[in-house]
Amino acid sequence: MKIHTKISFWGLVVAVWMTVLPACQTDFTNPNAPTDAQVLSSRDGLLNLAVGVRVLYATSGVRFMVENNAVTAREAAITTTFINMIELEDGGDALTDFNTNVEGLWASMLRVMGACEDIVAAVDEVELLASTRNNLRAYANIFRAMAIGALAQNYAEVVIQTNRQNEASFVSRGEAYAEAIRLLEAALADLQGDPSPEVAAILQGNLNLQDIANAYLARFRLFNGNYEGAIQAAAQVSPQRTSVFTYDQLNQNPIWARVIQNNVPNFRPIDHFGLPEGLRPEANDGRRAFYLAPSEDININGFPIEGLRGFFENDNSPIPVYLPGEMALITG
C-alpha cells in the first residue's frame, strides 16, 4: 500500500503544479496604457498623441502661464496658504527654483516640446497620406514653437530641443524666438497643400492652424524686433475666426479649476487688473465687466481682490489660443 500512497503524494503535487502552471506568466502587457513603441509606430497613436499634446498645453501649460504671470505681475493675488503660492506672491529670494509653479511651467512646456519632436520624427516612419504627414508635422511644429515661445517669455535662457540623454543646451531668449519663428514658418509651408481629413478631424473646427501659426509668428517676430514681419504675419490672421482650446468635465478649464471650482480659489484678480493709477482702464471699459466680478474682499497680504469671470466661468469654457485684439494692436 505504501507504494500507492507514495505515488499519490507526488501525484497530488504534480496535479496542483499542473493546475497552476498554465497561469505561470513572467511577462505581462500593460492594460492601462500603451508604451512609446506602440504609440509612435501607428497612425492612430500619432493622432492620439497630437490631441494629447494639445490637452497638455491647454491644461497644465495654460494654468502656469496665466497663474505665474498674474501673481508675480500683481494682476492677481493669492487666496491660499499653500507654500508655492505664498512664495509666488512674495517673489524675490522667497521664490525658490523648486517652487511648484516655477518648475511646472518649465516642465509642462518641455513635455509638449518632447512629444512634438517625437511626432515630427515619427511621421516619416509611419505610412500616412502625404497631406496627413505634412499637416501633422505642421501641427506638431506649431505647438513646439508655442512652447518654446512660452519658455522664452518666462525664462532668461531656455532649451529649444529636448534630449533624453540629458545633453540639452540652453540658448538665449532671442535665439529661442528665432527657433520658434523658424518652426512656424516651416509649419506654414507644410500647410500649403491639401488639408488632411485626419488632422482636420482632430481639430474639430476649433483650431485653425494657419491662423494660430500666423498669430504666434506675429507675436514672436514682434518680441524679436522684426516689426515688419510681425505686421505681415498678423495681417494674415483672419479677424473673422477664432481658435480656441476646448475643455470638458475631465479636462477642465485650468483657470476655472484654480479660481472658481468649488469656490476654493487659489488666487483672484486684483482690483483694476492690479494696474497703478494712471494706467487703469476707464471705468466703463468693457474689459472690466467682462473679466472681473466686483468684490470687497482683501487677500492675506492686503491686496484688494475681485471675482474672476472672462473665459473662465465654467469648467468647459473655451480659452482662446490668442486674442484677435492682439493682432489688431500689432498691425496698428
Binding site: F28, N30, N32, A33, P34, T35, D36, Q38, V39, D44, G45, N48, L49, V51, G52, V53, R54, V55, L56, A107, R111, G114, A115, D118, R164, I202, Q204, T246, Y247, D248, L250, N251
Partner: peptide, 25 residues
C-alpha cells in the same frame, strides 16, 4: 508592475481619444 516602460496615459476629450506621455521616463 509597468514602471519600467515609458507609458502614455490615455484620455478622451470632446469625443477624441488622446494619449499623453507619462512624466515618468
Amino acid at each position: 508592475a509597468f514602471d519600467r516602460f515609458l507609458n502614455y496615459n490615455p484620455l478622451a476629450i470632446g469625443g477624441l481619444s488622446a494619449v499623453v506621455p507619462s512624466t515618468l521616463l
